[in-house]
């Protein structure tokens, strides 16, 4: 397990949930017995107000992970310094155990599409992204995690498979990896690669977190397409792939992401705890 800066409550190698606004009040009222949560960083870029007050209250009692969707680490544009400054301010305020974003880009020429778009797996993109991750880490004065994104297209000019790109990127940038097991499954089905080959390429010493989530299946004349919608329970195939990751890489914090059609909080926590059951069956938590 790699060392992660932890200035507040730690994020242990157990299950956590993505905490969304619809559950804020219930979470604070019911205080579910789950050790940590992850929130989307950009939702807390405010100067003040209720949302930030909720986060302040949550981080006093729970391990906290800040998961960003807006740094656009793979963009050809310069890094958005205002965005980075707001992230830095938030990190300094809540002192999260983990800070992450994606191996993706969101916009170019000053226009942002606010989606996680696939980076071409080329030497040019590798050098470019590693440098940008370095800038972010220098600014935040800590290691960040980068997450493999799901994808629906693949570039004709790719110079290496995605798993090689992601692993090499982490080594070059000196960052950690957030392995999204659902994203591997989605992309593997959409592009026809072996998800186990992807997992085998992930350097265990750099993997600091897993994500699991549900997805949608779109049927059409061209065949099935899996879409990373985070709007459904985790599928059996993704649980199986998580077990494979645990066997190959080891026990890590596992985050259940759910962003749409959110179930009641207790149901979400219960689903996340399936990951604990899987981990406990394989690896006892260190005392």
């Amino acid at each position: 397990m790699p060392a992660v800066d932890s200035l507040s409550r730690p994020v242990p190698a157990t299950a956590g949930i993505g905490l969304r606004a619809v559950h804020h009040a219930e979470f604070l009222a019911s205080r579910p017995a789950i050790p940590w949560v992850e929130v989307h960083s950009e939702n807390f870029f405010a100067d003040g107000g209720r949302q930030l007050a909720v986060l302040d209250a949550v981080r006093r009692d729970y391990g906290l992970s800040l998961h960003g969707v807006g740094l656009s680490l793979g963009s050809a544009d310069p890094l958005d310094q205002e965005h980075l400054a707001r992230l830095q301010r938030l990190v300094e305020r809540v002192e999260p155990a983990l800070v992450s974003d994606h191996v993706a880009w969101s916009g170019v020429d000053g226009v942002c599409l606010n989606d996680l778009l696939p980076v071409p797996c080329t030497a040019e993109a590798l050098v470019h992204m590693a440098a940008r991750i370095g800038q972010v880490q220098d600014r935040l004065r800590r290691q960040i995690l980068v997450e493999n994104a799901s994808s629906y297209i693949s570039y004709a000019g790719a110079e290496m498979p995605e798993w090689e790109f992601v692993a090499t990127l982490a080594r070059r940038a000196g960052c950690l990896l957030l392995v999204d097991v659902n994203n591997i499954h989605v992309s593997a089905c959409n592009h026809g690669f072996d998800p186990l080959q992807y997992l085998d390429a992930m350097p265990p010493d750099l993997v600091a977190e897993y994500h699991i989530a549900g997805h949608s299946v779109v049927e059409a004349a061209g065949g099935q397409l899996l879409v990373d919608t985070h709007d459904a329970p985790v599928t059996a195939a993704v649980w199986t792939l998580l077990e494979a990751a645990l066997a190959r890489i080891g026990r890590r914090p596992v985050l259940l992401e759910r962003d749409a059609r959110l179930p009641p909080l207790a149901e979400l926590v219960a689903e996340a705890r399936i990951a604990d059951t899987l981990m406990d069956a394989r690896h006892a938590l260190p005392a």
């Binding site: 606010n114 693949s154 004349a221 061209g222």
Partner: peptide, 20 residues
């Protein structure tokens, strides 16, 4: 022209367009 996909290009690009 930059992608490997040919047959169901519109559907795959459509996922990103819809997300956006």
């Amino acid at each position: 022209r930059h992608l490997q996909q040919r047959g169901d290009l519109a559907r795959r690009i459509g996922v990103y367009r819809t997300n956006t």
